[in-house]
Design a protein around this nucleic acid. Structure first.
Lengths: 198, 198
DNA sequence: ACCCGCCCATGACAGGTGTCACGGCCACGC
DNA sequence: GCGTGGCCGTGACACCTGTCATGGGCGGGT
């Protein structure tokens, strides 16, 4: 089993926690998303425990990379933020499980075992919430623009980053504002991020 | 020793990690900041390990509460975000230590021992950074207004929340924008939060 | 071929925003 | 007393934003 989390303390602590289970063994630890595949291959891990927030590549793209490069290896996402959009994207990336860091510690080992056995593990409260608010309604460009808008700069600054005209950026923002039911782009960006649409 | 972190998984994992050290014992675990003092008292903990991001009360105010209510008990802040302002406020709240979750797992036990022995433990890289950008230049009202501005609403909305005139809010925001070296209030709010000024 | 949706862009308009100058109130320190 | 600085408010101005209408290009479905 491979452990990926950017916070060394949490990574070490999770390793200690899982070491208590005699049938589980942590064979590798990484702190970056773009090192997952290589280390998983060389350590012959059969399950990858991935945090989402990581430098290099986030856990979801890491999961997709594992699915493509190491088909036999299963992935389990463990994250702080139970955003519905994250769950959806994680499953699309081929993850076998999705666990929030709020869950009791004892259930983690159980989740790892289930994933290893080929079962799916999904936080139940999150699953219903995910069905409730549906898919991401944002267009690709709207996502891109809104992501840059998170920084808080002016329209001109955003336009410079995404190489678009200022007017076009405003149109995309206006559309995103409508879809999020907000009235300013800052609000729209915040809401979209909370929902995992970015 | 008492462990406070809102994420059950992390809490359990840290407990497992610290249990490996024979001279340390976790006597209580809480998931909310406002339960720290009561549980620390009844469990007779001598050190409190506090996360900052917690419901009820954040780790810094919890540290202040512990200092006031249980003078003999020392507190050690363990947090995800190494914001200079956090360190400053933590020390002002009487915390004996400040550790970022990026630090290697092995050093945590050592930090706990040092704090228990009455020493101060401060992340060195953070300490220099904290000296570098100095104290929080924001006025009390500027802080308040900027905190609400984080939500992303319009000036009118902010003014309604803080019970001020819209013009005054704009003046405070303009001043905060100047102090943060930014050019929009969204940027200013983001920067101020990153620096721990909110 | 046709419609549809996404993408890009422009122009115009009302309203919001950032800045500045000004005034008044209060608490604090010299 | 008097200066200083925070706090609150008003007014005015240039600029930025959000919205809408319009148009053209592109690909995907029927």
């Amino acid at each position: 089993m491979l452990l990926a989390d950017d916070q060394a303390l949490v990574r070490g602590a999770l390793a200690a926690l899982l070491a208590l289970e005699s049938d589980l063994e942590v064979v590798a630890e990484v702190g970056r998303g773009d090192e997952v595949v290589a280390r998983a291959r060389e350590s012959r891990a059969d399950v990858c425990l991935l945090d989402i927030e990581m430098p290099g590549a986030d856990g979801i793209t890491a999961a997709a990379a594992v699915r493509d490069a190491l088909p036999g290896v299963r992935t389990l996402i463990v994250t702080t933020f139970g955003r519905p959009g994250y769950l959806r994207r994680a499953l699309e990336a081929g993850a076998s499980g999705f666990v929030v860091k709020d869950t009791p510690a004892r259930q983690l080992a159980e989740a790892v075992r289930k994933v290893h056995a080929g079962l799916r593990v999904v936080d139940p409260s999150l699953a219903t919430e995910s069905l409730l608010d549906g898919a991401n309604p944002l267009t690709e460009r709207e996502r891109e623009v809104l992501t840059v808008a998170l920084g808080g700069g002016t329209v001109a600054a955003i336009a410079g980053v995404v190489h678009l005209s200022a007017g076009t950026v405003r149109n995309h923002l206006s559309s995103a504002i409508g879809k999020t039911g907000t009235s300013t782009r800052a609000e729209a960006a915040r809401v979209a991020q909370e929902r995992g649409w970015l």
